[in-house]
């Protein structure tokens, strides 16, 4: 086959390339550049190669906060995904209840992150907070500022409160997309409610669930503001997640080279886990 080669087409790609370069490639490459240097000041830097990376990978600080991070993200998924599905299933399908539910569910999503943190910081306080006070009144010793377990639970509940709506709304839209005849057919088949869920609703929800799982994983894995406002990472380091460890390193200790290497590892972890989720969830498609 004779093809006419016309390289002018590349010119059309140039604007996009320039845009992507400035918004993504240049910043990312700057980080890559920093990550191989030890930086003391603007004119005082040394090339250190992969030293930061090998040091970080053996660093217990990183290990611990990575473990905490995974623990947090998986807890978030384990609670929010099923809860979101249950909420979506129990929402009304028609009538005035629909807009009411939709508005109520969207409310937490509209609140800025640091406000969410502040809300829970206040509401969880034992002296003036409604929840904290009530818990202490009924005899449960609750103090998120001193007890690591309480801090953990509070951060988790806060995230569930903030983000379950997103999963519920996604699932609700997925459920609404199932034609009524499927339910009719199931009724005629005398299928149980569980069978309807297992064999009609869940398979039809698969695609939105995939999006929900990925969004919630990525978001929770990068969580920063809420725990920072609520607990400041404490007590001790019990709620210090990856992003906060990173911020301390970069801004607190001004350890730019090390922080840059950390960011790259962080970024690759998110990429890898998201890819794993995606392949795992779309792979089952081949069988079904």
């Amino acid at each position: 086959m004779d093809k006419i080669h016309n390289n002018k087409a590349w010119l059309l790609v140039l604007p996009v390339f320039a845009l992507v370069a400035f918004s993504a490639i240049v910043p990312l490459m700057t980080v890559v550049n920093y990550s191989v240097q030890d930086i003391f000041g603007p004119n005082n830097r040394y090339f250190v190669g992969t030293e930061w990376f090998s040091q970080l990978l053996r660093d217990p600080l990183l290990h611990n906060s990575l473990l905490r991070q995974f623990g947090f993200s998986f807890s978030v998924l384990a609670i929010e995904i099923p809860l979101g599905i249950v909420i979506a299933l129990s929402m009304p399908r028609r009538g005035l209840g629909v807009p009411t539910c939709l508005i109520l569910l969207s409310l937490p999503l509209l609140i800025p992150w640091n406000v969410v943190g502040t809300i829970w910081q206040i509401i969880g306080r034992g002296d003036i907070g409604l929840y904290g006070w009530a818990l202490n009144e009924v005899g449960i010793d609750y103090n998120y500022a001193a007890n690591p377990t309480d801090a953990w639970i509070t951060v988790l509940i806060m995230d569930v409160w903030h983000w379950t709506s997103l999963v519920a709304l996604l699932c609700y839209s997925g459920l609404r997309a199932i034609p009524d005849v499927y339910y009719q057919a199931a009724r005629i088949d005398r299928a149980s409610h569980w069978a309807v869920f297992r064999y009609i609703q869940l398979p039809k929800l698969k695609n939105v669930l995939l999006i929900a799982v990925m969004l919630r994983f990525m978001d929770s894995f990068m969580i920063y503001t809420e725990p920072f406002v609520l607990t400041g990472g404490g007590p001790g380091t019990s709620t210090t997640f990856l992003s906060q460890t990173l911020t301390k390193m970069a801004v607190g200790q001004f350890d730019i080279g090390r922080a840059a290497a950390f960011s790259l590892i962080y970024f690759l972890i998110i990429l890898l886990v998201t890819w794993l989720f995606y392949t795992a969830m779309t792979h089952t498609d081949d069988k079904a």
């Binding site: 034609p179 005849v181 499927y182 009719q184 057919a185 009724r187 005629i188 088949d189 005398r190 064999y199 009609i200 869940l202 398979p203 039809k204 079904a288």
Partner: peptide, 18 residues
């Protein structure tokens, strides 16, 4: 309908996907 013995075929192709 759950207590009757009927079956129905629709315009759309309705099967259990999984």
């Amino acid at each position: 309908v759950r207590k009757r013995n009927v079956s129905m075929v629709y315009q759309q192709f309705i099967n259990y996907p999984t």
